Amino acid sequence: MTTWTGNQLPDMKGRTVVITGAGRGLGLITARELAGAGAHVVLGVRDVHKGRRAVADIPGTFDVRPLDVADLGSLRAFADAWSGDLDILINNAGVMDIPAARTADGLDQQTTTNYTGPFALTNMLLEHITDRVVHVTSQLHRLGKIDLADLDWRTRTYNGMAAYQASKLAVVLFSLELQRRLAAEGSPVRSVLASPGIARTSLAAHSPANIINRLTFLTNSPERGALSVLYAATQDVPGNSYVGPDGPGGVRGFPAVGRQGKAGLDEEMAAQLWNATSELLGIQAR
């Protein structure tokens, strides 16, 4: 099997990429590599000053803009300010196993950050996107369970890890339905999934045991984890491809096209989830 690395990135000159949550971790590495290949990279971050500091010494062309994926007003402002084509949108921002909390819109913080916010942003920007949308998901989507009647954890007892798993399964189903709709329209735009495996980043810092960052022998480095995102964003893969590490269990290794869990291929659930999400957010999705 050929090992794919960032050295094999194509020439990205003339391409514009938006990356959410790109001020640190996998998002920042992805931004650095794409800018190094010639792309104009727009970082959508909550703290613009921190974002600018993060890329200050990195070669390339960057634009840092305010964006909080858990705030519908912020999403609308970002999308309304966009003009011209956008080649690639990378929905990277995420949180993991955080305590129960509500956003300013009254939505579950974790679900909104990981799924419903990216759902809204993608639909708001879709008319500008010319190439693809990359959704960063997790192998833990395979353990997720979707409750269409309570997507937002209003009636169930909140469980941080269960909410994380459900949100990542929702991302996988979102990609499936988005790709179906794009294909039905004859659009050349692709929806692609990327799993970094288990990467040692600050994502798991809120998890009670922070066990992921302790199991270094089972995990990918952040640099290696970002390769799946870079591969999904730049390689000629079919719509709704699932890109993840090629090692045992898909938790570490180099990027390759694999297969999402069975629950992530349920077309009926994907369509129902799309409608339920649109209703929850009160937006007219594509």
Results as ranks from 00 to 15, higher is better:
186 G>P: 08
220 N>L: 08
122 T>R: 00
166 A>Y: 04
141 H>Y: 03
162 A>L: 12
148 L>Q: 07
241 S>Y: 05
128 H>F: 02
203 L>D: 05
199 A>E: 08
135 H>W: 09
145 K>N: 13
224 R>M: 11
140 L>C: 06
200 R>K: 14
211 I>V: 13
161 M>P: 00
243 V>K: 10
240 N>T: 04
155 T>H: 15
194 A>E: 08
170 A>M: 09
213 N>A: 10
150 D>N: 12
152 D>S: 08
144 G>Y: 04
123 N>T: 03
206 H>W: 04
201 T>Y: 06
114 N>D: 12
241 S>P: 05
187 S>P: 03
116 T>A: 05
210 N>A: 15
238 P>E: 10
244 G>K: 13
228 S>Q: 07
243 V>I: 15
143 L>C: 01
115 Y>G: 07
136 V>C: 06
178 L>T: 02
208 P>G: 13
204 A>S: 15
161 M>Q: 10
237 V>D: 07
231 Y>E: 05
147 D>H: 14
174 F>N: 03
112 T>D: 02
177 E>V: 01
164 Y>G: 11
147 D>E: 13
206 H>D: 15
244 G>H: 13
208 P>E: 13
145 K>P: 00
145 K>T: 15
122 T>W: 00
228 S>H: 05
152 D>V: 10
226 A>Y: 10
209 A>F: 13
226 A>F: 09
197 G>A: 09
128 H>T: 00
145 K>A: 15
172 V>H: 04
185 E>G: 01
241 S>G: 10
154 R>V: 12
